[in-house]
Design a binder for these strands. Structure first.
Lengths: 351, 351
DNA sequence: CCGATGGGTCGAACCGGTTCGATGATTACA
DNA sequence: TGTAATCATCGAACCGGTTCGACCCATCGG
């Protein structure tokens, strides 16, 4: 069951078995076959812990995501899935760490106990102490998201500023003058989550540029909060005709609130935002939105991390993504009259 | 940085440091403090690989889920999250394995290379070769789901048969006579996924019992498929007045299809099924459904696995859950006339 | 005063791999 | 035919922990 056993049965030394397996030194064809036969027969596989101890690498990467205090969003699932798959392609395993704070025990274990060779961090904050710590100790890591000062860092991010701005321009082009912004929960905004901040920023600046009347809201990550938020929006300014949201999980609630208030989407009210396409296509009418390319981001993060692990001296690299807005069916010119009713039900707005 | 370094600086032997940390043999208060001071000063944490090698346990559990060929569903995310958190409470880490088949390399690595002490399997099939293999080699594992012959196994499952039947009875009680069943994708049904089979079974039997006219469908895990599926349902039997679904991801598409066909939910058409509550509450009107308690299931699975790891000779245990149907707003008596319009928009049907 | 008891510590072996330097057997070339 | 170069293999050390047996020294009981 261990390498010594294989060696004994094959009539060679342990080191020869090791070399036969790794190919780091030549082994005669004869002995190689003899060893391989024994291995096949016994179904031997080298012990991962022993190997990790000997050569100082675990062949595992850590995936750090915040605890479930806040609900998981669909995007996080996509990240987890795509990171796991991309890592498998490089022969890396993925260790999940439900860690938030720098001081978190689970987070410390990943690093201090050397369970992983590198880490990928999700849910980045503008000031991120985890990331500061990692760069301070020069631990190989890649962030999905970027801090306030991402220069010289390894990350793959989404240009939330530009995307939110694009949403505003889209609405402004359609003639909307009074629009609302539905952000992630206030707790996350206060904690400094970058998507919440940059998205808000992009929205505010673009709206100012276009001279729009705006109101911004924070909203819990669930349907009930979305519905409540929409009620507040219409209560605060009944003349609002459109909204931009970053909040996937609230989307269904926002739609419900609109229906309850008797506002038809998109005839009376336009909705857009930054949302994974899977969700955008789930609601009716389908959401015109900047589709978050979560799978691609996970893949890219793994690519970067593996490169950093393989070539420790490579200068830092990053990817900043800004996918275009996918035109679906949830936005329409302000103040239009009802058109073909079929257009409300999922048919693309611009075929 | 290693235990020898600590020993040297504290002026003791390596074994003494080890005993001071583990408490497996008495160490004088004096030396304990001296050692602790050095450890704090240097921020020492024992190397996980070395420890795993020495005492034969990695303190890691594997979470095996199928590759992304089929889209991830919200339920899977809930499992991943709750398993990770529950494991952390027991001081276990979670290693993700995107593995499907028994022969999968990634799956073999988990076991053969001893990367994990035990495993939790998701997406169980009635005949599950992975599970057969694990029980054959007596590898500690717990299934989320149950096979055709779950006797003597470790698992936590959902009673899909009973839940689907409950949905049928609920609809029959409301007077529906022609109902449809929307299952997971055909590919999964053919592969023997237990939820698809047992759900279908429970549906069919209960419908026969109640003398209902039924049609059953498989449906892809996405909104577009849901919409297409609903079109087929109404095409095949326009007199259908209700459906039961197991397919979370198709739900939005089913609703869209109904709206497009001019069927109002729940006035003209009732919808129910087995779905995580988060999703049931996202759609409008909110779905009357058996809420899948994914978080609880993940927690229970970890509890069982840890018990099995700690007491290898405990007889097998399991949990079979059958949550009640949560009455929301998507079902109504067959052939009713429109009631208070507010009832359509998310207010609970039975307050 | 002596032997038994036991708390505290140490050295050595071990877990299961990898890797370095050395050795013996071939082959190549002078 | 002797010697250098090459190839294949081996033994030993090492990675960083844990654990067993032995030892020393106090304390206690008879």
């Amino acid at each position: 069951m261990n390498i010594g056993e294989i060696a004994k049965r094959a009539g060679v030394s342990r080191s020869t078995v090791s070399y036969a397996l790794s190919g780091k030194r030549p082994v005669s064809e004869d002995t190689r076959q003899k060893i391989q036969r024994v291995i096949d027969e016994l179904g031997y596989q080298p012990n991962a812990s022993a190997r990790a101890l000997a050569n100082g690498r675990t062949n595992t990467i850590g995936l750090v995501f915040p605890p479930a205090g806040n609900h998981y969003t669909g995007m996080q699932l996509d990240f987890i899935g795509s990171v796991t798959e991309a890592a498998a392609a490089y022969d890396y395993d993925v260790l999940l760490s439900p860690s938030g704070a720098d001081s978190d025990r689970s987070f410390q274990r990943l690093l201090g106990e050397r369970r992983v060779d590198g880490a990928i961090l999700m849910e980045i904050r503008l000031q991120d102490d985890r990331l500061d710590h990692l760069t301070a100790v020069d631990f190989p890591s890649v962030a999905i998201g970027r801090t306030a000062h991402p220069e010289g860092g390894w990350w793959v991010g989404l240009d939330h500023t530009a995307l939110a701005a694009a949403c505003v321009h889209h609405l402004a082009d359609l003639g909307h003058r009074r629009i609302a912004f539905v952000n992630r929960p206030e707790q996350l905004l206060r904690a400094g989550y970058e998507s919440a901040h940059r998205g808000l920023d992009g929205f505010t600046k673009a709206a100012a540029e276009r001279g729009l009347a705006v109101r911004t809201y924070c909203c819990g990550d669930d349907a009930a909060s979305g519905q409540a938020c929409l009620e507040r929006i219409l209560h605060d300014d009944p003349a609002t005709t459109a909204l931009v949201t970053l909040n996937e999980a609230a989307l269904g609630g926002l739609y419900r609130g609109l229906a309850q208030a008797g506002r038809h989407v998109p005839r009376d009210f336009s909705v857009t935002g930054v949302v994974a396409s899977r969700w955008a296509e789930t609601v009716t009418p389908q959401l015109t939105a900047a589709d978050v390319p979560a799978e691609q981001m996970g893949r890219l993060a793994v690519d970067l991390l593996v490169e950093r692990l393989d070539h420790p001296d490579t200068p830092a690299r990053h990817h900043l993504l800004a996918p275009p807005i996918s035109l679906r069916a949830s936005t329409a010119p302000a103040g239009t009259t009802p058109g073909d009713p079929a257009a409300d039900l999922g048919a693309p707005m611009h075929p």
